[in-house]
Write a protein that binds this DNA or RNA. Structure first.
Length: 505
RNA sequence: GGAGCGUUGGUCAAGGGGUUAAGACACCUCCCUUUCACGGAGGAAUCACGGGUUCGAUUCCCGUACGCUCUACCA
């Protein structure tokens, strides 16, 4: 349509943790921008000062950084359109200037109704809306004379500026995902544009700032669709429809059970994270994050990309580069998608297998340290991770699957041995200890060979001995091949662990 | 209540006038494995419903149902 450089933006309000759906919105913005060689801007939508939460902005930056979705321009990164916080942009005087202009042109008006008066009205009339059908009964510059209005303004009586929705106009626009969308203006209400504290509402701010920052494509969640006509009208009034960015309203991410938007409560209820990273609430409670749950950022991003978009091929595992290369708005779904934590875990597993061990080894090491497991031999560590990664879907799984290589198990599942335990087996393992101690070779295959030979010599079936041996070495019924474990933990440790469990039986 | 948006297996989804309606996750069966995984082979959907248009509709049109979102001086 035009040759302008693509510029997109994500404009969160810093009120809490960054929701999965928010990250996906960022992702689609980012992918679209990068696909077209454009810029991704992050603007902080902090127009509601009563909802400001300490630390939320910094948290958002951390999440984006973790995901590898860094903005080209933001309050942190700077850029040609500073400031990037709406609370600071207010000083530019843009919001007030445009609000006044709208009033002067008869496209908006001053309203002096107090919050109490509006509340009373809502109680009095069911489904009350401040609109062209009711504004004549309210206290505003449309019902007041020019002199009266001016007097109230001069006296400093608090007011808001409301858009004056026109009568019976079909407000249409072309959504990149949904095609033409149309609303009749008579059914829309007169939204507040400028609040009594002088701050703009989202409606005014998004239009003014998108214009000022030369945004070419505006993506947001589907929940914004009903207010789109306000924004389209504002664009028409202020800057002209030709300058308006192209809209795309992204489908919602739904809760796995039942219906409705996925909320952080669903995560707590169903036992999975909803935020990108852990978020600590003011009351000290924490909402779990994907990062802390053991997700790789590559997997998290990959999983999110596939929630509402697909390449049209059978490919499901994508690197960021591949996503950038293949992404297109045309292939974004219209319908919402239910979030499936099982599938999310599958992506993580795929990425654990796909990436070099070295790329996530530090994370696992950190987890080990938290559990007090000391890793001295880095080469062995890497070998072990390589050996067990097939059994780990989340990074945290490595603690159980690999921890016993570096620390003798304390809890031994003797209950799984005892029922079939007897003197004969006891004697066999005593002998096995000696055999291991004296074995000249210490390779898994050799160990297996001599172990089975010893079993045969004692007229025991290897099958009856393998599980006990496993439990002695790892503590439970898990882990890779027993003899590979023995090889890696070494002669001394192997003998020690067998002896220890023998003492418990 | 109103407006808008949506509806292919349990979930994510491809497809888009004529197909045996892909694939993935999960599930079940089997193989491999004397743990658990990994890997491999199988199993299950007639496309919300009702009307059109058409030789023919899951695919186009119109209704209906259902669901969701919004309906704040929140975003």
């Amino acid at each position: 349509m035009n040759n302008k450089k693509v510029r997109v933006r994500f404009a969160p309000s810093p009120t809490g943790g960054l929701h999965l759906g928010g990250v996906r919105t960022v992702l689609f913005n980012y992918l679209f921008a990068k696909h077209h060689g454009g810029d991704f801007i992050l603007r902080i939508e902090d127009t509601d000062q009563t909802r400001f939460v300490e630390g939320a902005e910094e948290y958002i930056f951390n999440c984006l950084k973790w995901c590898g979705l860094e903005p080209d321009e933001s309050p942190l990164h700077g850029g040609p359109h500073v400031p990037y916080r709406q609370s600071e942009r207010k000083a530019l005087g843009l919001y007030e200037k445009y609000a006044k202009q709208l009033v002067a042109n008869g496209q908006a008006y001053y309203a002096f109704d107090t919050a109490e008066e509006l509340d009373a009205k809502r109680k009095e009339i069911n489904n009350f809306q401040y609109s062209q059908h009711t504004r004549n009964a309210m206290k505003n510059s449309l019902t007041l004379s020019g002199a009266e209005t001016q007097q109230l303004l001069d006296e400093g009586v608090p007011y808001v500026v409301r858009i004056k929705m026109p009568e019976n106009v079909d407000v249409k626009f072309n959504d990149m995902i949904r095609g033409e969308v149309s609303f009749n203006s008579s059914l829309c209400d007169d939204k507040v544009l400028l609040k009594a504290d002088g701050m703009p509402t989202y409606h005014l701010a998004v239009v003014v700032d998108d214009h000022d920052m030369e945004i070419t494509h505006a993506f947001r969640g589907e929940e914004w669709l009903p207010s789109a006509p306000v924004h389209v009208l504002l664009w028409q009034y202020l800057f002209g429809l030709d300058a308006m960015p192209q809209w795309a309203h992204l489908p919602l991410i739904l809760k796995p059970d039942g219906n409705g938007k996925l909320s952080k409560r669903d995560g707590d209820r169903l036992g999975f994270p909803v935020f990108a990273m852990d978020w600590q609430n003011a009351d000290g409670t924490v909402n779990a994050g994907f990062k802390e749950r053991g997700f790789l950022p590559e997997a998290f991003v990959n999983m999110l990309a596939m929630l509402g978009w697909n390449a049209g091929t059978e490919q499901e595992v994508f690197t960021m580069e591949e996503l950038v290369q293949q992404f297109s708005m045309e292939r974004v779904h219209k319908g919402g998608a239910k979030f499936d934590f099982e599938k999310a875990k599958w992506y993580n597993h795929e990425w654990i297998k796909k990436l070099e061990v070295g790329s996530w080894k530090p994370e696992v090491k950190k987890l080990f340290e938290e559990k007090g497991i000391v890793v001295m031999d880095d080469a062995k560590f890497e070998k072990v991770l390589e050996l067990v990664k097939d059994r780990c879907t989340l990074l945290n799984d490595f603690v159980q699957q690999a921890g016993f290589f570096f620390q003798s198990p304390t809890a031994i599942d003797t209950a799984s041995i005892k029922p079939k335990w007897d003197e004969k087996k006891q004697l066999f393992f005593v002998e096995a200890i000696r055999m291991f101690e004296q074995s000249s070779l210490w390779q898994a295959t050799d160990l297996e060979h001599s172990f089975k030979e010893l079993a045969a010599a004692n007229q025991l079936k290897p099958g009856e001995l393998m599980l006990p041996l496993r439990i002695m070495l790892v503590g439970g019924k898990f882990g890779p091949g027993v003899f590979e474990i023995a090889e890696l933990i070494g002669r001394e440790e192997t003998a020690k662990r067998i002896g220890y469990t023998l003492g418990l039986l």
